[in-house]
């Protein structure tokens, strides 16, 4: 049996990109976008699995407008050859459930054994899409996996993840949604040749209409009221010795 894997990815601002609140209250985001950190780990995990299962069929999916295409080109440059953009820029304001609904609709026909996604995206840090896809499809979920071992012939997969202070080794049959934590795989930097090739590739698009999902249904549950600066701390108080430090900590009631 040939193994079928779906990888869910998203393009987000780089870790180092400057993100600040503009004068009009919206965000100014520096134009440095990359494939989300945990999503690249998911891509690499899929490539690792293919090393042991050469006939594995891997489909990378990304939802939204032109940025989703950029993340798919990254996936191609890293070594995936089957990628697909779902929807268009009308999906860029979608919430997690909107995105998950579109993906679940596409996965119905792809029929994967394994769905890999990052544990959260580097922009909204919501951690919604992976678990929501599992809920919509009614299939098992293992969040934030740090190890994965696929037994395609036995029809099962074994994973390790951290669960509230313990390390759990769990086993699931197919299909299963697994989200990637740091440590699951080490993403490699693609070679220039592949990057160039991916730049020229034609990216397949499947529209919301084709999938029977309305972009209008992908919003309306959440309404953004505004952005705020992170809480700041007062100027640091320097202390000279440990007894003084202990006295201040006692005074603040934390020891």
């Amino acid at each position: 049996m040939s193994l079928k894997i779906a990888v869910l990815i998203k393009q987000v601002p780089d870790h180092e990109a400057i993100v600040q609140i503009g004068a009009d209250g919206t965000l100014d985001i520096e134009d440095r976008y990359v494939c989300s950190f945990f999503d690249e780990i998911a891509i690499e995990a899929a490539l690792d699995i293919r090393k042991a299962h050469a006939d594995a069929e891997i489909l990378a999916l990304s939802v939204g407008g032109k940025r989703s295409v950029e993340s798919l080109r990254r996936a191609m440059a890293m070594g995936l050859d089957q990628v697909e953009q779902l929807g268009d820029d009308s999906m860029d304001g979608a919430d997690g459930l909107g995105v998950a609904s579109l993906i679940a609709a596409r996965l119905k026909t792809f029929n994967p054994d394994l769905v890999l996604a990052g544990k959260q995206a580097g922009d909204d840090d919501m951690g919604a899409v992976g678990p929501m896809v599992s809920g919509l499809m009614g299939i098992p979920l293992v969040n934030a996996a740090t190890a994965i071992d696929v037994d395609a012939d036995g029809g099962k997969v074994r994973m390790t993840h951290s669960m509230n202070g313990e390390t759990w080794t769990v086993e699931s049959g197919f299909p299963v949604v697994v989200t990637a934590q740091k440590g699951l795989a080490e993403p490699h930097v693609p070679v220039v040749m592949r990057v160039m090739k991916a730049m020229r590739a034609k990216i397949i698009n499947t529209s919301t209409e084709d999938l029977g999902v309305s972009a209008a249904d992908s919003t309306g549950r959440l309404k953004r009221l505004g952005y705020y600066s992170p809480p700041t701390r007062p100027q640091v108080q320097m202390v000279g010795d440990v007894n003084e430090l202990v006295a201040v900590l006692a005074q603040r009631g934390v020891i």
């Binding site: 919604a128 919509l136 509230n164």
Partner: peptide
Amino acid sequence: TNDTDSEVVPRLAAMCGAAFASS
């Protein structure tokens, strides 16, 4: 916002079409 509820709650939100926010 812990390892178990981070699986259960978004999954439940998807099952009943509810708004979900984490952290």
